[in-house]
Nucleic acid binder design. Structure first.
Lengths: 199, 199
DNA sequence: GGACGAAGTGAAACGTGTTCCTATTATGCC
DNA sequence: GGCATAATAGGAACACGTTTCACTTCGTCC
C-alpha cells in the first residue's frame, strides 16, 4: 500500500527512477560530508544530482525527509557490512560497547556528515515517521544483537534496554555534533549508561 | 566577564532593558504556546514585544537562542515553584518518577509550547552552549534532588545516573513532541529506564 | 504511430530567518 | 542644558526552503 510521503526504494518501478533516487541521495551525502547540514541546500542537491528542483521535491518532500532517508541508507549499508561477522567480547557490556565504539568512531570520522544527519533526525516531525521508525529499528536490532548474539527470542526487557541505550547514544551524539561535548565524553557517557543498564 | 552571545539577565543595566528582555520572552512564550515552533516568527515576536526586529536580534542573536533562553526561564520558574517542598515517595525510583511525571504532565498541558522549546533545544548548536548548559544543570539538579533528598554530597555516579535519565527523558520527549509516541509511551519509557538505572 | 496521462524541467515567486543601513531617540558626562 | 555615544526604530535586502505553473518528455495503451 506504500502510503509513505517520500518515494521509498521499493515503489519505484523504472530503473531511471531508481537511478535518480540514488543520484539524489549520493549528492546529499556528498554535500553533507563536505559542509554539514547547512551545505545541503536543495538547489545544490538538485543541481549536483542533475534533476530539477521540482523533481527533487517529488522524491523527497522536504530537506528533512531527504536527510533522514540518506541516514537510513547509510545505516543499512553499515549494518550490512557488519552482518554475519561475530561481535567480539565476552559480556553483553563488552559487545555493546564494541559496537557502539565502532559506530561512533565511524561517525566521528565524518563530522560534517554526522552533524547533518543527526540534526535532521532530531528535527524530524511526525511526517517523517516511517523513515525515523526504519532507522530506529536498525539501531535497536544492532544493539540487541550485540546484547544476545545468537539468541533469537528477545524478551521485552531486552528490547526496552536496547531502546534506552539507543536514546542515550542519540543524546550523547547530539551533544557531540553540536559541539557541546568531546568524543571522549561520548565514550564515557555510553560506558556509564551501558554498565548501569547491562548489569 | 559575561561573554555570552545573547544578553543574559545579569548584564542588563537599565531597567528599560530588563523590561524589553522580559517583554520579548513573554511574547515568545505566548506565540509558542499558541502555535508552536513555526508560530514563533521573529517579526511576530518583535511586534508583540513592541521592539524593532533589529533590537530583538541584539538581545537574542537567533531564533534558537531566543527559544532556548525562554526554556531556561520557564525551567527556572518551575524549579523555583517546586523548591522547598519535599518530594513524595519512599524510594529514589518513586521520587524520580514523581518528579518526571509532574514535569511531563506540565509539559503535555502545553503541547505547542513544549514542541517549540524542545525542538529549539535539540537543534541548538555550539553557539548556544551557555544557555543549553544552564538548562542541563537545572535538569540534572532536579533529578539528583529527587534521588537523594537532603544529601548534599553527591557521588559522581549519582550525577552520571541523573544525566542518563535526563538523556532518556529528552529522547522520549522528542518522540512525543514530534508525534511519534504517545504520552503513555513516554511514561512507560521513563519507568523502564528509571527502574533499570536506580536499582 | 498517435493519444494520453504521469513524470520531469526550468524558472518565477513566496515566506521567514537573518543582515544591513540610516534616521531617531535615550543615556551618561561636562 | 549641550554633547558624544550607544541603543532603538523602521524598513529594505538577502538567503534558502518551499510552492507553483506552464511547458516538455517519457512510457504505455490502442
Amino acid at each position: 500500500m506504500t502510503s509513505t510521503n517520500s518515494l521509498t526504494a521499493d515503489d519505484l518501478g523504472s530503473a531511471a527512477q531508481r537511478d535518480r533516487r540514488k543520484r539524489i541521495l549520493d549528492a546529499t551525502i556528498a554535500l553533507a560530508t563536505r559542509g554539514g547540514f547547512d551545505a545541503v541546500q536543495m538547489r545544490a542537491v538538485a543541481e549536483q544530482a542533475d534533476v530539477a528542483l521540482g523533481t527533487l521535491y517529488r522524491y523527497f518532500p522536504s530537506k528533512i525527509h531527504l536527510l533522514v532517508s540518506a541516514l537510513g541508507r547509510e545505516f543499512e549499508k553499515a549494518e550490512a557490512a557488519g552482518r554475519g561477522k561475530p561481535i567480539p567480547g565476552d559480556t553483553p557490556h563488552e559487545r555493546v560497547m564494541y559496537v557502539l565504539g565502532r559506530t561512533t568512531r565511524g561517525l566521528q570520522g565524518e563530522p560534517h556528515l554526522t552533524e547533518a544527519l543527526t540534526r535532521a533526525f532530531m528535527f524530524a516531525d511526525a511526517s517523517v515517521q516511517n523513515e525515523i521508525h526504519h532507522v530506529g529499528m536498525l539501531m535497536t536490532s544492532m544493539l540487541t544483537r550485540a546484547m544476545q548474539p545468537g539468541k533469537t527470542d528477545l524478551t521485552e526487557e531486552d528490547v526496552a534496554i536496547a531502546k534506552v541505550i539507543g536514546d542515550v547514544w542519540l543524546a550523547a551524539l547530539v551533544g557531540w555534533v553540536t559541539g557541546r561535548t568531546t568524543s571522549e565524553d561520548v565514550t564515557r557517557q555510553m560506558d556509564v549508561a551501558v554498565r548501569l543498564l547491562l548489569r
